[in-house]
Design a protein around this nucleic acid. Structure first.
Length: 278
DNA sequence: TTCAATACCGATGGGAGCGA
DNA sequence: TCGCTCCCATCGGTATTGAA
């Protein structure tokens, strides 16, 4: 059987499975030591079940993984893919320094050494995020092999596009990056409790008020990043509820438009009055 | 283009202290 | 007791410079 390729997306976006954006798999955790987990259930919503074995992943791991996927998206999964560290760092908008190269190597190791079990309806995936990788010492290239079964996580409605410019603008702010991914995976944002976000993002803050402080800073940063890129993002925290309003992407507008059209047709067929919820 | 060393910056959570 | 502000330690990231 011929190996599949990933779905493709424009250069300014990155495709990410919703299961990963709506869970604490790539958490908004602080810098520093990472704990090792053994088949731990990861907090998630939307009917996604994830269990994880390996070193705790963070937003930098997600950026590295997305960069590898981006470079691999038009090539056959399951085959050797070759990249220079310089190219990957450039794609990640990181400076090409010894520290960052070591960081890249460590993150690739982490992504290759983990095991993720994802179940979403009739879709499931068990395996590492990078099947295999090594550094070719002759050509100084990284040789990466991605599991062909990863393709299952990129079903038509199972993944989202995230704006790479906005994500890059939030570098160094893991919670803001997590929020960006989370809200990018929803065509329409709905009210959520602060405590729910606290669990979903995998924050290590022990007290909710402390997390709320960080959350406000992260939302401010996210809002500024959206504005800088000519888009709007507004939030409000009322009591323990978080409300978000943002400018939807083109694909999400199309999706919402399809949903609205279906609702309208059903209402017309049933002889009911139709009111748009948008 | 690749790699390394160094100094400094800054995001994050922890904890002390304070007032209601 | 709770919620908040402020300060601090940690440690990953950046800037700069230079060599191969």
């Amino acid at each position: 059987m011929k190996n599949p390729t990933l779905r493709t997306w424009p250069d300014e976006f990155r495709g990410v499975p919703n299961a990963f954006l709506r869970s604490a798999l790539f958490g908004a955790v602080r810098k520093g030591s990472r704990i090792d987990l053994k088949r731990v259930a990861i907090n998630s919503i939307g009917g996604v079940q994830i269990s994880y074995t390996g070193t705790r992943l963070d937003q930098i791991d997600l950026s590295v993984w997305l960069s590898v996927l981006h470079l691999s998206r038009q090539q056959m999964l399951g085959q050797e893919l070759r990249y220079k560290a310089y190219g990957v760092l450039k794609l990640m908008k990181k400076t090409d320094t010894g520290k960052n190269r070591k960081l890249l190597h460590d993150r690739l190791l982490r992504l290759a050494a983990c095991t993720v079990e994802v179940v979403l309806g009739d879709i499931s995936y068990t395996g590492s995020l990078i099947k295999h990788f090594y550094k070719d010492e002759n050509s100084l290239e990284y040789v990466v092999i991605l599991d062909a079964r990863l393709n299952a996580l990129f079903s038509k409605s199972g993944f989202s596009y995230i704006d790479w410019s906005i994500r890059s603008a939030l570098d160094g702010q893991p919670l803001a990056q997590w929020l960006h991914g989370f809200y990018s995976s929803h065509a329409k944002a709905y009210g959520l409790k602060v405590s729910t976000l606290h669990q979903l993002c995998g924050s290590e803050a022990r007290e909710i008020w402390k997390f709320t402080q960080t959350l406000c800073r992260a939302f401010d940063a996210l809002s500024a990043a959206y504005n800088k890129h000519g888009k709007s993002f507004e939030y409000a925290i009322r009591g323990d509820l978080v409300h978000v309003q943002r400018q939807e992407s083109l694909t999400q507008c199309r999706h919402l438009s399809r949903v609205e059209k279906t609702k309208m047709m059903r209402a017309v067929l049933a002889g009911r009055e139709y009111r748009s919820s948008r």
